[in-house]
Amino acid sequence: MEQNVGSLQEQARKRKDRLKALRDKKLHVSFQEDGEPENKKAATEENIEEKHRSVYLRLRNYTPEDEELKVRQVPKVKPASVEDKVKDQLEAANPEPIIEEVDLANLAPRKPDWDLKRDVAKKLEKLERRTQRAIAELIRDRLRGSEDELAGAVGAVGVEEGDSD
């Protein structure tokens, strides 16, 4: 077991050395006497000079007495009117109503059983057709029965007329 611990420590030391070498290679470190890398010092000095060049002094809330600084003073701006902004938003939110496109059927609330009627509609169509057929058949039966009665009535009337002659 001691060999495993020793080899693990050795592997960890090698890993640390490799990481340090990579860091040094990445930074291109050349140390001076004070221990700070040259490229780090140069970078910070360049950054400071760059910041001074890019910063432009703008005086918004301060009224300078010096003539050179008065040039950099930002002119006073009046705040925008809140009423105008609100009025514009209200006008944009209220479009003109278009009466032609309004469908009253869509506006009316649906009855609570509309979905049941929709689901049962196909079955009702079948039942309606069967009902119509049954009614037609009943009418035909009555007509056949009335034809027989009518023929019998006509025959009876003919017999009565023949007797009276």
Rank of each mutant, 00 (worst) to 15 (best):
E68Q: 11
E91C: 08
E49L: 07
D115K: 10
Q89V: 06
E45S: 11
V120G: 02
T131K: 13
E96K: 11
A108W: 09
K76I: 04
N47G: 05
L57I: 13
A93N: 07
D113M: 00
Q132A: 15
K51G: 08
E91H: 08
A80F: 01
N61K: 12
R130Q: 14
A105C: 06
K126C: 03
K123D: 13
V82A: 01
R60V: 15
E101R: 09
D24M: 12
W114C: 07
N61R: 12
D84E: 12
L127S: 10
K76N: 00
P95I: 03
E50L: 10
K26I: 13
L59P: 06
P75F: 00
R23I: 12
L104W: 03
K26V: 09
H28P: 04
S30M: 07
L127P: 06
R53K: 14
K76Y: 05
E45A: 15
K40H: 12
I48M: 07
K111W: 02
Y56H: 15
V55G: 05
R133V: 13
D115S: 14
S81I: 03
K122R: 12
S30T: 15
L22F: 04
V74T: 04
L138W: 05
K20L: 08
K85A: 11
N94G: 07
K117E: 14
E50A: 12
D84H: 09
A121D: 07
K87H: 08
T63V: 05
L57W: 04
R110D: 05
V102R: 07
E125A: 13
K51H: 08
D88I: 03
R118F: 05
V120F: 06
R72F: 09
K20F: 01
F31M: 10
H52C: 06
K117V: 02
P64L: 01
E46R: 09
K78M: 09
Q32I: 06
R72M: 11
K51P: 01
E45W: 04
S30A: 11
E100A: 15
T63H: 03
G35L: 07
T44A: 10
R58Q: 09
D115V: 10
K78I: 01
R110L: 11
E50G: 07
E101V: 14
L90R: 09
K85P: 02
Y56T: 15
L107W: 04
A121H: 02
A108P: 03
R58D: 02
R60N: 12
V82I: 06
K87M: 15
D66R: 06
Y62S: 05
L57D: 01
P109N: 03
D24W: 03
A80R: 13
